[in-house]
C-alpha cells in the first residue's frame, strides 16, 4: 500500500491538453424518460470542469455514469485514452475516478486520521491486527500538510469539524487513495466565505498537482470561482462548451433563461392545442 502517494504525475499547467477522461455519445433512459441523449464530454488533466444545467437536465445522471454507479444504455467512456466499461463504483475507482459526497464519505464519530485511513488502516499483525495509530497520525499529518489542508486537531472527531473542513477531509481521503479524477457534488454548499475559500484553494492546489475535477453546482458564482471550463447541459445534451474566461455569469444566466422561455412557450403552445382540441 502506497500510503503517502500523491498523484505521481508532475504538475501540469493549464496549457497541457492531455485528455484524461472522454465520454462519447452517452445515452441513458429511465423507462419513458430520456435522461441523456448523446452527451459528449472531455476532461483534461489538471482541469476543473463545471457542469451547468437545470434540475432534470441530466447532470446527476451523467456524473452517476462517470463514477460507475449507473451504466449507460449506449456510448463509450475513455480514461487516459483507453476505453473502459464500469460495472460498479469499484471499477471506476480502480481507474482513479472517485466521487466525493461530503456526508457519505466520513464517519462523524471517528477522528480525522481514522477517517483518512478508513479501511486502509495500517496495522501490525495483518488484517485483524492492532492499529498503528502513531504511524497513521504521522502519515495523515504529512499528507494534509502536503495538500495544505489545515485541521486544528487530527484527533478531533470529524463531527466536531466545520462543513468546509469535512469537505476538505473527504477530498483529501479520495486523493490520498490515488484518485486522478474527482467528481464533486456541490462542494461549496452551505459554506461561509472563509470555508469556501478553503475549498477553492484546495481545488486549485489539487488541480496544479494534476488532479482533474468535475464539479456540479447550482451556484454560478461558485462555478466561476472554481472552474476552468463549463459545459452547459440542456435536455440531456451538452449544448455549450466554453472556457470560464470566455463567458460571464450574465451570459450564462441569459442563456438558461432564454432556453427556459422557449420551453415555457412550447409548453404553452402544446397546452393551447390541447385546450383547442378539447373545446
Amino acid at each position: 500500500m502506497s500510503t503517502t502517494a500523491l498523484p505521481s504525475t508532475p504538475p501540469v499547467g493549464p496549457a497541457a491538453t492531455e485528455v484524461i477522461l472522454r465520454a462519447e455519445n452517452i445515452h441513458k433512459r429511465f423507462g419513458a424518460v430520456v435522461a441523456l441523449r448523446g452527451v459528449d464530454l472531455e476532461l483534461h488533466r489538471g482541469e476543473v470542469l463545471g457542469l451547468v444545467g437545470d434540475n432534470g437536465a441530466g447532470k446527476s445522471t451523467l456524473v452517476k455514469i462517470l463514477c460507475g454507479f449507473l451504466r449507460p444504455d449506449a456510448g463509450r467512456i475513455f480514461v487516459e485514452g483507453r476505453e473502459v466499461s464500469f460495472h460498479s463504483v469499484k471499477d471506476a475507482r480502480a481507474h482513479g475516478i472517485e466521487t466525493v459526497y461530503q456526508d457519505l464519505a466520513l464517519v462523524p464519530q471517528l477522528t480525522v486520521y481514522e477517517n483518512l485511513f478508513l479501511n486502509r488502516e495500517i496495522t501490525w499483525l495483518g488484517r485483524l491486527g492492532f492499529l498503528a495509530r502513531r504511524h497513521m497520525r504521522a502519515l495523515a499529518r504529512q499528507y494534509l500538510e502536503d495538500i495544505k489542508v489545515n485541521v486544528p486537531d487530527l484527533e478531533a472527531e470529524v463531527e466536531m469539524l466545520s462543513g468546509g473542513q469535512r469537505q476538505a477531509i473527504a477530498v483529501a481521503r479520495a486523493t490520498r487513495l490515488n484518485a486522478k479524477i474527482l467528481l464533486l457534488d456541490e462542494p461549496l454548499a452551505a459554506m461561509g466565505a472563509k470555508e469556501s475559500a478553503l475549498i477553492m484553494e484546495l481545488v486549485r492546489d489539487l488541480s496544479a498537482r494534476g488532479v482533474s475535477m468535475i464539479v456540479i453546482d447550482h451556484n454560478y458564482a461558485h462555478l466561476f470561482a472554481l472552474c476552468d471550463r463549463l459545459n452547459v447541459i440542456q435536455q440531456g445534451k451538452v449544448t455549450v462548451d466554453t472556457k470560464v474566461a470566455d463567458t460571464s455569469v450574465e451570459e450564462l444566466t441569459e442563456l438558461m433563461v432564454s432556453a427556459f422561455r422557449r420551453q415555457l412557450q412550447a409548453g404553452q403552445e402544446a397546452l393551447g392545442e390541447i385546450s383547442v382540441d378539447g373545446s
Binding site: L104, L106, Q109, L110, L118, E121, T123, G129, F130
Partner: peptide, 16 residues
C-alpha cells in the same frame, strides 16, 4: 484493532 474501528464505522455511518 482494525475490527473495532470497522465496528465503530459500521454503526456511526453505515453508508460511509
Amino acid at each position: 484493532t482494525r475490527f473495532g474501528l470497522h465496528t465503530t464505522a459500521s454503526g456511526g455511518n453505515p453508508l460511509a
